[in-house]
């Protein structure tokens, strides 16, 4: 399946797979034959996906649209980025200069910030603020989670945020303390452009529904309900072109059953000698992002005095659906 990458490079994930192979040599601890076989099966599916054909249209970097209103009555992305107030999203205040410095100092250890190095200062400020919050949208739902990582996440529960290759292959979460299992729904998506991602976040924080959620009187046991906003309202009519994603192939027509089988497969993968008893999870590229909605989930702030965004990702949230 074709997935448009903004940079137009390596859409079949070849380079990333090579990187992963280097991180997980055959004799490394925790990498036994079963893991290697499973890894090669996942890689085999990735390799079979079709690359973008020559001449396929790839959207221009969203940074080139920062000064163009997304609609006649809407502010430009840059205006939204410039007036973004991190505190309104439960995040630490960051200036443009502090953001550049933060990214320069931490990008080597936090590779999801690497793409931010060359970004517009207004974009850098949002990404740096997000990275200092508790949310995980940047690690899992921006371009660091490229197509190969998205496929691996949805089929094998490999967490893009997990930087230890062995733990990633064992489906250990990269954000939770204590080697907890990583979880994922039947679809993994990302915004494959840092400026589009930052704009989506900043414009989303301004949205009345997100504001209502963030300003809900704090209750230590209660969370605001997730909020859905159409992608086009956040990025403009072409916003869907910056989205990519993969969804599990149903098992016996059921995505619920597919998730259940995936859980069994992952458990077997991390248990030497155990056979999964189910077929290898497979995925297909998501189509139809034109109708996608951005989802905002919430969590308590670190200070336990309010709410911040736990994650932001794009989803095709359908109504009636056959399982």
């Amino acid at each position: 399946m074709v997935v448009h990458r903004v940079d137009g490079a390596d859409v079949d994930g070849t380079a990333e797979r090579q990187t992963d192979d280097k991180r997980a040599p055959a004799d490394s601890p925790g990498t036994d034959d079963a893991l290697s076989r499973a890894d090669s099966r996942i890689g085999a599916q990735a390799a079979n996906d079709k690359p973008v054909p020559a001449g396929a249209e790839v959207p221009q970097p969203y940074a080139k649209q920062l000064d163009i209103p997304i609609a006649d009555d809407q502010p430009t992305p840059r205006e939204v980025l410039d007036r973004f107030t991190p505190a309104e999203a439960g995040l630490p205040e960051v200036t443009n200069e502090q953001a550049a410095e933060y990214i320069a100092q931490t990008a080597d250890d936090r590779p999801w910030l690497a793409a931010a190095k060359d970004c517009d200062p207004a974009v850098q400020r949002i990404l740096a603020a997000m990275d200092q919050g508790q949310g995980h949208a940047l690690e899992r739902h921006e371009g660091f989670a490229d197509d190969d990582k998205l496929r691996r996440r949805v089929t094998a529960l490999e967490d893009p945020a997990q930087l230890d290759a062995d733990k990633r292959m064992a489906a250990i979460d990269g954000c939770k303390p204590g080697d907890k299992n990583h979880r994922c729904g039947d679809t993994a998506t990302a915004i494959q452009d840092p400026a589009a991602f930052a704009t989506m976040f900043a414009r989303g924080v301004e949205h009345a529904k997100v504001q209502e959620a963030l300003r809900m009187p704090y209750d230590p046991d209660r969370l605001p309900q997730p909020v859905s906003i159409p992608v086009r309202d956040l990025l403009g009519a072409d916003g869907h072109r910056y989205c990519s994603g993969y969804t599990l192939e149903p098992v016996d027509g059921s995505l619920s059953k597919a998730r259940d089988h995936r859980a069994a497969w992952v458990e077997a993968r991390r248990t030497p000698g155990r056979e999964p008893g189910v077929s290898d999870p497979r995925c297909t590229a998501v189509d139809g992002f034109e109708a996608a909605q951005t989802q905002y989930f919430f969590r308590s702030t670190r200070e336990k005095d309010g709410y911040e965004i736990a994650t932001m990702y794009v989803e095709l949230l359908r109504g009636e659906e056959q399982e």
Binding site: G185, P226, F297
Partner: peptide, 19 residues
């Protein structure tokens, strides 16, 4: 969805237990 979705961590589920 607010407390059990896999994009959320165990803290959310614990909140629901208390709630």
């Amino acid at each position: 969805r607010t407390y059990c979705h896999p994009e959320l961590d165990e803290d959310a589920y614990e909140s629901l237990r208390r709630l």
